[in-house]
Computed example of a mutant assay.
Amino acid sequence: MDIMSILGFILAVALVLFGMTFDQEAMKLVLHNLRAFIDIPSMAITLGGTIGVMMLSFPSGAFKKIGKHLKIIIKPYKFDPEQSIEQIVELATEARMKGLLSLEDKLNEIDEPFMHNSLLLVVDSVDSEKVRQVMETELDQLDERHALDRGFYEKAASFAPAFGMIGTLVGLILMLGNMQDVNALAKGMATALITTLYGSLLANIVCLPVASKLKARHDEEFLCKQLVLEGVLAIQDGENPKFIEEKLYKLLPASRKKTDEDKNPVKEEGKQKKKSRRKNRKNEE
């Protein structure tokens, strides 16, 4: 479970509520201040308007994915590039020793569909160019599909403040049309201001963070599948497993690359001891 996502949302909401209810002079929370921020017409304009135009802009299937997307954010599938590399190197070693056909026995142990289907093509002796084409096409489709999913929330984030502004205009019209009625003036001003607040909150606490987190999840998955693509093609070409490992580690972003010490702690320790001996000799001289 992604605790950071849950804590981030709770923290954002809590601090907004704190700002609404905290009385700086009395130095305490005044909960009845929240009544000033509850306005049913403003909610109808902002939330209802945003949902309405989203229904106009996207098919029903996009709304059905909302639950799935929230699950991906809160309880994501963990994509581990290092584990993918380790698995590919193991398969490369098997293929190097026993031939590509030996991988057929390993297919049942592979749960990840992309790697399973790609290795199946290799075992079936499909030409390497065709294997690359199939894999790259699947990656392109994945990229496009995830971009459309993110676009759903990014579009909602642009609609919400727009309807907040519409609500502001409605409130101003009501206010200016009833300048003689003090109650109508106050109500119009409340609608004018609160709709903008609702639109900003909906965009910046819900829609944009969801789109951003989906992008992060996509990057994790896409990286692992890129490693699988290069690894499977290298296995098909019969490359050395050690070379494949080095090649795949170079594809990792700098923040995820292992240092020499992580890769070979014994070797690194030996280097440190040699440096220490040289330093001691210089001091003795």
Rank of each mutant, 00 (worst) to 15 (best):
K155F: 13
E112W: 03
L119M: 08
L193M: 12
I66E: 00
K78A: 08
S118F: 08
I205W: 07
S255C: 08
R35P: 00
N183A: 14
A156G: 03
E94R: 00
L248Y: 02
L11S: 04
L47P: 01
L142V: 05
T168Q: 05
I45R: 04
A184Y: 05
E154I: 00
K267E: 09
Q180N: 12
T196A: 07
S60T: 13
R96F: 00
G19S: 04
L31I: 15
K65D: 13
S125C: 05
K78T: 15
K75R: 13
L233Q: 07
F163R: 10
L201C: 10
C207D: 04
K215Q: 04
F63R: 11
L15Y: 13
R278C: 04
N280E: 06
A160M: 09
D262K: 15
L251F: 12
S102R: 00
L251V: 11
A211E: 08
V232I: 12
A190S: 13
P41S: 10
F22Q: 09
A147S: 02
P81G: 05
K279F: 03
T46H: 12
K250W: 07
D111G: 02
E245D: 11
L56G: 09
G49D: 14
K71F: 00
L169Y: 11
F58G: 11
G99C: 13
V122W: 00
S60M: 15
R96N: 02
P253T: 09
A44P: 08
I51L: 06
L201A: 02
I235R: 09
H69F: 13
G19H: 05
K247T: 02
L120P: 01
K213D: 03
V210I: 15
L174F: 05
R256K: 14
K258L: 08
P59S: 14
N183Y: 12
L176F: 13
K155T: 15
A156W: 02
E239N: 11
R35N: 07
D39S: 12
K71T: 10
A62V: 05
N264R: 12
Y153C: 06
D80Y: 04
H32C: 06
D260G: 06
M1S: 10
P81C: 09
L15A: 14
L11R: 06
E109H: 03
V16N: 08
L29G: 09
D23A: 01
Q272I: 09
P161E: 07
T21H: 02
V122Y: 00
S84C: 06
L100V: 10
I40D: 07
R150V: 02
I194P: 07
